[in-house]
């Protein structure tokens, strides 16, 4: 069993209207020191396999195909061995 933790975030120069809306909301709640909020996605993917290499190859493909859009988003992930 392998757990994967995948973070997907917008590329630095891509506009993030959601992040901006949250930043504005925080400001209106008087948090004056917030300079930026960016919103991304976090996936937990469990694999029924102990073959790290094969899992990583699959995960790499998943990230490109579905979990992120490489045109506007970056992704990174960590793999952890898990028991159950």
């Amino acid at each position: 069993m392998i757990h994967a933790k995948v973070h997907v975030t917008l590329k630095p120069d891509v506009m993030d209207p959601q992040g901006l809306a949250v930043k504005n909301a925080l400001e209106s709640l008087d948090y004056k020191t917030v300079s930026r909020v960016s919103i991304g996605k976090y996936f937990l993917v469990d694999f029924d396999s102990s073959d790290r290499e094969a899992v990583e190859a699959d995960l790499e493909k998943m990230c490109k195909q579905l979990l992120s859009n490489p045109v506007i988003e970056n992704y990174r992930y960590q793999l952890e061995d898990g028991t159950q």
Partner: peptide, 15 residues
């Protein structure tokens, strides 16, 4: 084209 970075923009309908 899949890898092109900057040609796609993100819309903000509220704005």
């Amino acid at each position: 084209s899949q890898e092109r970075r900057s040609a796609v923009q993100v819309g903000d309908p509220f704005m």
